[in-house]
């Protein structure tokens, strides 16, 4: 096999890890609360700025800045839930989706207001590994590793803990959870916190690889939605698999075509597949 193609495939795999992490958070929120956070990628953007700001301007150690950014994303997500979603929990789901779209605008413009439209990066250059002629960026490798750790952590939380079981249960039958003595609103708050915390983690991994600017959410937000829908909204395992399918299409497509064409390919693949199987790849 062509060595550059192999490199593309490996890079696709690494990209898939971060996409998977992003889709896990979004899927968790959707599965439990039945809300699509259109502004999910903007929460990521905000957390990327947080890392950038703390690290570059205040000179915090990177790990500390990342931890703070995760906390920041969590608080931001809680605000989104409590201020925007809670008041309209009873109205049509599409209204909730649109309300988070307003949050998207808000965060984007606020970032423009605070930081301008410049592209900013941490100025960290991590080494590039060479393995038998294949070049792999170290930052991508770290991102992939941490994304997997995050995914495993979420999996353990959901399968091994009381609250995690409750989160899975509420996604299966909302009403009966009340009969178990569960205040569903508290589970919603918890879910929003975890989902946005994952967004914060993803932000830490993305800021190592990409420049941050106010509109960065628009570049990978749609891909994240696509991954979630493809896996079946709310289906976390499906989303996990879909993340790797989509990232391979983009990576391998990007090897043969210009990168936008590769993304077009991914979106077209998505549209076609959804129109054939609206329930997602793993749906019944």
């Amino acid at each position: 096999m062509d060595i550059y193609l192999l490199e593309a495939i490996i890079n696709g795999l690494l990209l898939g890890g971060v996409l998977a992490l992003l889709s896990l958070g979004l899927n968790l929120i959707f599965g439990v609360i039945d809300v699509v956070w259109i502004c999910y990628a903007e929460v990521v953007m905000a957390a990327m700025y947080a890392v950038f700001w703390l690290y570059t301007f205040y000179g915090w150690p990177l790990l500390l800045a990342c931890a703070a950014a995760i906390v920041f994303a969590t608080v931001l997500g809680l605000l989104v839930h409590i201020v925007v979603i809670e008041p309209i929990l009873g109205s049509a789901p599409i209204n909730q989706l649109l309300a988070t779209g307003g949050v998207l605008f808000f965060l984007q413009s606020l970032a423009t207001l605070l930081f301008g439209t410049d592209f900013r990066n941490l100025g960290i250059r991590l080494p590039v590994l060479e393995l038998g002629g294949i070049f792999i960026s170290f930052s991508r490798l770290i991102a992939f590793g941490i994304a997997l750790v995050g995914a495993v952590g979420l999996f353990l939380f959901l399968s091994r803990t009381y609250l995690g079981t409750a989160v899975r249960a509420i996604a299966q039958d909302r009403e009966v959870m009340g009969l178990m003595g569960v205040n569903e609103r508290r589970i919603y708050v918890l879910t929003s916190a975890i989902g946005s915390g994952l967004a914060g983690l993803a932000a830490c991994l993305l800021v190592l690889q990409y420049d941050v600017h106010p509109f960065i959410g628009l570049t990978f937000g749609p891909i994240t939605f696509m991954v979630c829908v493809l896996g079946g909204l709310g289906n976390m395992i499906g989303g996990f698999i879909a993340a790797f399918i989509i990232s391979q299409i983009i990576a391998v497509g990007g090897y043969y075509f210009p990168i936008e064409a590769a993304e077009v390919l991914a979106f077209v693949f998505f549209i076609v597949l959804i129109l054939i199987r609206p329930q997602g790849i793993l749906g019944k």
Partner: peptide, 10 residues
């Protein structure tokens, strides 16, 4: 504008 949109929808 963004904040107003949220308020409108709610």
């Amino acid at each position: 504008y963004g904040a107003l949109l949220v308020i409108f929808i709610i």
